[in-house]
Simulated assay, not measured.
Amino acid sequence: MAGYRLRSFETIGSTNTEALAAAAAGDTGGVWFVTAQQNAGRGRRGRQWESPVGNLAATLLIVPESSPTLAATLGFVAGVSLNRALSSILPSGLVKIGIDGADGQSDGSKARIALKWPNDVLADGAKLAGILLEAQKLSDGRHAIAIGFGVNAIAAPQGLPYPATSLLDLGVSRDAQSVFEALSDAWVDTFGMWNDGRGIGDVLKQWRASAAGIGAPVAVNQNGEVLRGIFETIDDEGRLIVRSDDDRRIVITAGDVHFGATASARS
């Protein structure tokens, strides 16, 4: 965790909220906010994120000198970092589960951990972790970036429309602190590669190498409208590129992504 400060809490509403409040109060960033229990966590689009005691809830506050457009690519830095951390924790081997699963890759071979655009991490095809990137403009014109990480270390939420899992479900007994240590170490290396946005090409290359579903059927739900096609790639700005059924190449900037049977369903 070289060069970063740490603020820890027993219980907190949201680590992202705490981080952005600190930025508004003048914190210059480079600080982790970690809690044993988060009781008002949120995911993308304001969705609730369950974070019971034992799971990891952490946010890194960064105030980069780069443009807002480049700062937005920190989500891919976060994804690569979390992929590295979880891959180092989870034993090798593939036991694919879940209707929304898609194989990940590592050095050309199948891998248990895969990155799902834009901000999820899958293990054996089920959601293991999520990332939430939020920005806030500061009085000096710069943007504070709160990068929230949620990892299901001991428990996964139930009743979701997609499969979810935890490290414990996968046979790995690791506490939130050890997961955080692996994540914070991986972040240092990946953030160094990003290099104020100058190295985003290298980061995206690593992200693509671990991506779930490239070359496979995909369905993207955008406010109730569903686009189906083939997940072609992630472009140099981190946007999802889908080859539609009528052979159009469509650029997607936001949406809920589904693979497998869900992507193929026509109802």
Rank of each mutant, 00 (worst) to 15 (best):
112 R>Y: 13
89 I>K: 03
125 G>T: 07
92 S>F: 13
94 L>M: 13
87 S>E: 07
103 D>H: 14
117 W>D: 06
90 L>G: 04
127 K>M: 00
88 S>M: 06
91 P>R: 05
123 A>I: 08
95 V>Q: 13
98 G>L: 04
97 I>E: 11
100 D>G: 11
99 I>Y: 10
124 D>G: 10
119 N>S: 09
96 K>P: 00
126 A>D: 02
126 A>F: 06
92 S>N: 08
113 I>V: 14
100 D>S: 14
118 P>V: 13
126 A>Q: 00
98 G>I: 02
88 S>A: 11
121 V>W: 00
120 D>Y: 06
118 P>S: 07
119 N>Y: 04
86 L>P: 01
117 W>S: 10
127 K>C: 00
117 W>E: 06
102 A>P: 03
91 P>W: 02
115 L>P: 05
92 S>W: 09
102 A>C: 10
89 I>D: 02
113 I>D: 04
115 L>W: 03
87 S>L: 07
108 G>C: 08
86 L>F: 08
124 D>Y: 01
114 A>D: 04
109 S>A: 07
94 L>K: 08
94 L>N: 04
112 R>E: 08
113 I>T: 04
91 P>A: 07
114 A>E: 04
124 D>S: 11
119 N>C: 08
88 S>T: 09
106 S>R: 14
126 A>Y: 09
92 S>Q: 10
116 K>T: 11
110 K>E: 15
87 S>F: 08
127 K>V: 00
104 G>A: 09
118 P>R: 04
102 A>V: 14
128 L>E: 05
86 L>H: 05
120 D>E: 03
96 K>M: 13
118 P>N: 02
96 K>Y: 12
112 R>W: 15
101 G>K: 00
112 R>A: 14
119 N>A: 02
116 K>S: 06
124 D>H: 05
109 S>H: 15
100 D>C: 07
113 I>Q: 01
94 L>Q: 06
90 L>F: 10
90 L>S: 00
122 L>K: 00
104 G>R: 03
109 S>V: 13
113 I>C: 09
